[in-house]
Design a protein around this nucleic acid. Structure first.
Length: 208
DNA sequence: AAGACCTCCAACCGCTGGGAT
DNA sequence: TATCCCAGCGGTTGGAGGTCT
């Protein structure tokens, strides 16, 4: 439609946010409030597009965010809301104070989907799986590394190298904290709890 | 100890809907 | 009505880091 780009991409940073960028964004929103994301980067002295600023604020820097693992109650609420609303993550997030749509979306894709499959439920329809579905689901549950393999396949298609991105993300922050450590004195979110990383294989499956 | 495998999540991209002109 | 601008949404990705062999 001939729409102008959302920002002058050649003059913007991409990838992980630095401590200084976070501070600038927080300071600006503290004084001026949210809104007018398009003009915010320039006003705040950030070399980011407004979209990126909005995302960073909404998903990470907002002071009212609740960090930490989801409770069982939250799990069940998400499942119930998803059965009613589908993939309307923003609507679901609206019912979970302190949670973001991105966080819920990630949590759904990494945990709840599998939880439903293990219960013999179709995560899309929330109905019991048919035997055929069940076979497919158990296959999916047993092979949730499929995403990784798909990526591997794409990498293979690129000659074994990672599929190139416009700009590599800068390495930032200490271990377990991709964003740089942030300065004291600002209303920054508490650190995330230890991640539950590592191999959690479905029963009966051996890695490698 | 090293490498393979896997999880997790921040951040990206593209699209859509609504308001303004 | 048609077009443009913008904020917001949903899907997808890269890569850090944990676990296992």
């Amino acid at each position: 439609m001939g729409r102008s780009p959302c920002c002058e991409k050649e003059h913007t940073n991409k990838g992980a946010w630095t401590k200084e960028e976070d501070q600038r964004l927080i300071a600006y929103i503290r004084v001026n409030g949210e809104g007018c994301w398009r003009s915010l980067p320039k006003a705040a002295g950030l070399l980011r597009c407004g979209k990126s600023c909005r995302l960073r604020w909404m998903n990470y820097l907002r002071p009212d965010l609740k960090r930490g693992n989801f409770t069982d109650d939250e799990d069940e609420l998400i499942i119930r809301l998803h059965s009613l609303l589908g993939n309307k993550w923003s609507l679901i997030a609206g019912q979970l104070p302190g949670r973001t749509d991105n966080e819920i979306k990630n949590y759904w894709n990494t945990h709840i989907k599998r939880k439903l499959l293990s219960r013999g439920m179709d995560p899309h329809t929330h109905r019991p799986l048919t035997p055929v579905d069940g076979a497919a689901a158990s296959h999916e549950a047993a092979s949730h590394g499929v995403v990784v393999r798909r990526r591997q396949q794409r990498r293979d298609e690129h000659g074994g190298a990672a599929v190139p991105r416009p700009e590599p993300r800068p390495v930032s922050g200490p271990a377990g904290c991709r964003h740089a450590d942030l300065a004291p004195g600002l209303p920054l979110p508490p650190p995330r709890p230890p991640r539950r990383g590592g191999v959690q294989l479905p029963s009966g499956r051996q890695p490698g």
